[in-house]
Amino acid sequence: MLSATDLHFTYAESDRPVIRGISFDLKAGEIVSLLGPSGCGKSTILRLVAGLLSPESGMITWPAGEKRLSFVFQDAALMPWATVTENVLLPLSLKNTVGESDVEKAHDMLAAVGLEGFDKRYPHKLSGGQRMRVSIARALIAHPELLLLDEPFAALDEILRFQMNEMLLKLRRKQGWSALFVTHSVYEAAYLSDRVFIIKNGTIEGEVKPSLNRDLPSFEQRGSPEFSKAVSRISKLLEARR
């Protein structure tokens, strides 16, 4: 569904390139994680794919038609002056006038992320995990083909992070979008992803395919030999970088 070819990028205030010849394909319905140390260019790749930055050279090819993508940031980036429903409706309300059906859609989306009945609350009244759920509901309401997630669960505790991982996989199964997922967690990358790219100094250093059996309950997936093997291979590639 998306093909990036030989991307290069340098920030204006720096003379050191952040992205140096990155190429990859992303298939429909696939979750690909970008894993690597801070400053290796993971978030820049997301911004290049989103069109928020333009590559110096190289190209990103989308299938014909309107590209539908959404972004989820590490902090929920909600409008504090707007209710939960108004926040979720943002992508639609910036394009058209919002109607009754859209409001219903927002309520459905909130139910899908486990926030039924929270529609009239303001972000100030929500916990960190609930705010992130609103952010995900906002990202999904426009029916994206591609979801770009920039360390969305980094600030959450481990238990909440597990819950969010489950929720994300469930939503992906239901809605079928693809995702580029930036994370610092080896375990999260191994559990969530169909493929994991190890990023080093602006290039893809290696690729790991966890191949977990998604039909198994989550605790069995996390305890499976495939999961351990994926974690081990990712760790080895990360170690090799040093």
């Binding site: 993508l69 980036a77 943002l90």
Partner: peptide
Amino acid sequence: DKNLSELFTLYGA
């Protein structure tokens, strides 16, 4: 908020 501003750009505000 820089992220919110980027979202407005992304959604064609």
